[in-house]
Amino acid sequence: MRDSERISRIASLIAQIWELQKETNFLQLIETLKGDYSMQQTGSVEKQIFIKDDEFEKFLEEHLNDLIRENQNNLR
């Protein structure tokens, strides 16, 4: 059985990322995240890949941390 809490965790990460990129439309954000993940995994955004929830969740956590660091550096 899949971890039912994953939905809340992943949705929360996406919401936090979106809050840091308010100028981005929702579907644009999702497509960008998917493309960035695909590029990281395969070196191409053209390849269709199966994305496992736990791997994507880890990617989102890393992406969020990168955005937070960027914002902190921009405030200095």
Results as ranks from 00 to 15, higher is better:
L67G: 04
L20D: 02
E62N: 14
W18V: 05
E62P: 00
A11T: 04
I14W: 09
L27V: 07
G43R: 09
Q21D: 06
E31Y: 07
I7H: 10
T32C: 06
I17S: 13
I68F: 13
I17G: 13
S4N: 04
F59L: 01
Q72P: 00
M1A: 12
I10W: 00
D54P: 01
Q72L: 13
S44P: 11
L75G: 14
T42W: 03
S44A: 12
L13Q: 00
L27N: 11
L13H: 02
Q16C: 08
R9H: 04
L64K: 01
K34E: 11
S8R: 09
S12H: 08
T24E: 14
N74G: 03
E46S: 12
S44C: 12
S38A: 14
I30C: 04
I14D: 05
D3H: 02
E19I: 09
K47I: 11
Q48Y: 09
L27D: 10
Q48T: 15
M1K: 08
K47Q: 15
L60Q: 05
I17K: 11
F56R: 04
E62H: 08
E62L: 12
L33C: 00
I49R: 02
H63A: 04
I68H: 12
V45A: 04
L13W: 01
A11Y: 00
Q28P: 01
N74A: 14
L64P: 01
F26L: 15
L13P: 01
E5K: 06
R76V: 08
R9E: 09
E61Q: 07
V45K: 07
L64E: 03
I14F: 08
T42Y: 05
L67Y: 03
L64C: 05
K22S: 11
G35W: 01
A15N: 15
H63Y: 11
F50T: 05
E5H: 03
S4H: 00
S8Q: 11
E5Q: 05
E55D: 13
A11M: 00
L29G: 08
K52W: 10
Q72F: 08
L13Y: 08
E70R: 07
I30A: 06
E70M: 06
D54S: 10
D3E: 03
Q41R: 11
N25V: 06
N65R: 13
E46D: 15
L64M: 03
D53V: 08
I17W: 15
W18Q: 12
E46W: 14
E5R: 05
R76C: 06
T24K: 12
Q48R: 13
I51D: 09
N74K: 12
E62T: 09
E31F: 04
Q28S: 13
E5W: 00
I7Y: 09
V45W: 01
H63Q: 08
T32F: 09
G43S: 07
